[in-house]
Structures are given as C-alpha cells and as structure tokens.
Design a protein around this nucleic acid. Structure first.
Length: 199
DNA sequence: AATTACTCCAACCGCCATGTA
DNA sequence: CTACATGGCGGTTGGAGTAAT
C-alpha cells in the first residue's frame, strides 16, 4: 500500500511517520557525510525514503539547532509582524526566527493565530452590520492582505497600548502550553545515541 | 467510563524555480 | 535552447492526543 514504483527502477518507498531507526540512520549519515543531493543521500544511507522526505525530516525535526514548541510571545509578535509584511512566505519568516522551521510557523499560524483572527472577525461581524459581513466573506480564506488589515488593529505596536493581549492565543501565558516533555524520544536522546554510534 | 469533538503537528502532495547535461 | 532532475515552498491532510459531554 505504501509502496510506490520509482520511474527507473522498482524501489520500494516508505511513507508515513519516521521510525527512530530511520532517524538515526539519517543523522549518522549526515554527521559523517554532510548534507548533499538528497535523492542520492537517501539511497546511499540505505533509507527507503524519497530525497524530499529525508530533506524535510532533517530540516524540520532532526537538525540539532531546531527548536520546537514554546513559541514565545515575542516570537508570536514577530510572526504576526512579518506575516503582515510578507504574507504566507513562511520560509522567509522562518529565517528571522532562529531555530524555527517554516513548517512550525505555518502550523502555529494556522492553528492559533488564524483561528483567533477568525474568531475576532466573527465577533466583529456579529457586532457590526452587513458591510463587514461582505468583506469577511470575501476574505474567509484569509489571504495575506487581509492579515495586513488585521494587523492595523492588532499590530505589535498596538499591543503596547492595547489590552487585547489576553484575548490572543496562549493568552496571558504567552507561551505554548503544550508540553515539551516528549512522550517519545526527544532529540537529545537521539543525538546522544548518535554520538554513541558515531564514528 | 464511554463517546464525541476538537486541537495540534508531522508528513505528504503538487507546483514552481533553478541547475545541469 | 530544451529536457530532465532536484530543491524549495506553500497548502493540505491524517491521526494521535486531549478536552468536553
């Protein structure tokens, strides 16, 4: 089922969640040989994954400098500011948040900030008249320029003199409450194991 | 205690840009 | 110049975990 024929040869390709073994293989290989052409890296490392998959796994999860969870209030503000400026240019935004990946920022935006914006819009629309409703309907997908509109109201600068902070995702806690205590292997675990195995 | 609804995030997909033969 | 391979990006989805009923 999760096998896909390759163009040139019938190589089985694994999909779905990465196992710890695969992680270790990838980490080990990159530690010894560095990043390279991902397709050939995948083959050379003996991983039955596409180069794309390896690249994604490495960049979003396995890199030693990746920070996950606990997005701070400052980071949240920066994300909103940069999103207002650039729209959904997640990789560009991620470059301004050391250790954060575009995927994480994108997820964070969608699950927390955008949701909050939609809520705010709902409140607004229930309070105001049909004029707003029309505008909302046309921007329900929240393209980048509607975010810019939103930022006029909720820009970081306006936060300084606005008491809406507690209404924001995460509220007064300012940080993501989801625990960092991974239920499975933490990256520290994996990296320490990698050091064990490394040559 | 069981079920349903919701949240969150890792991973995949498809498209586009760029590099190379 | 063209065709193909690869990388990078943004959008979307599946499923695990958690909260609510």
């Amino acid at each position: 089922m999760d096998k896909k024929p390759c163009k040139s040869q019938d190589v089985e390709v694994r999909k779905g969640p990465w196992t710890m073994e695969e992680d270790l293989i990838l980490i080990n290989y990159i530690a010894n040989h560095g990043e390279g052409v991902w397709n050939s890296l995948a083959k050379a490392a003996g991983l039955k994954r596409t180069g794309k998959s390896c690249r994604l796994r490495w960049l979003n999860y396995l890199r030693p400098d990746v920070r996950r969870g606990n997005i701070t209030f400052e980071e949240e503000l920066l994300i909103m500011e940069l999103h207002a400026k650039w729209g959904n240019r997640w990789s560009k935004i991620a470059k301004h948040l050391p250790g954060r990946t575009d995927n994480e920022i994108k997820n964070y935006w969608r699950t927390r900030i955008q949701k909050h914006i939609n809520k705010q819009a709902e409140i607004c629309s229930s309070q105001s008249n049909s004029e707003l409703l029309d505008h909302q309907a046309s921007t329900s997908q929240l393209p980048s320029n509607s975010t810019a509109d939103f930022m006029e109201t909720y820009s970081p600068s306006s936060f300084n003199h606005c008491n809406n902070i507690e209404a924001f995702p995460g509220g007064q806690q300012m940080t993501v409450e989801s625990s960092n205590q991974e239920s499975y292997w933490s990256m520290e675990d994996i990296w320490s194991m990698q050091l064990f195995n490394g040559d």
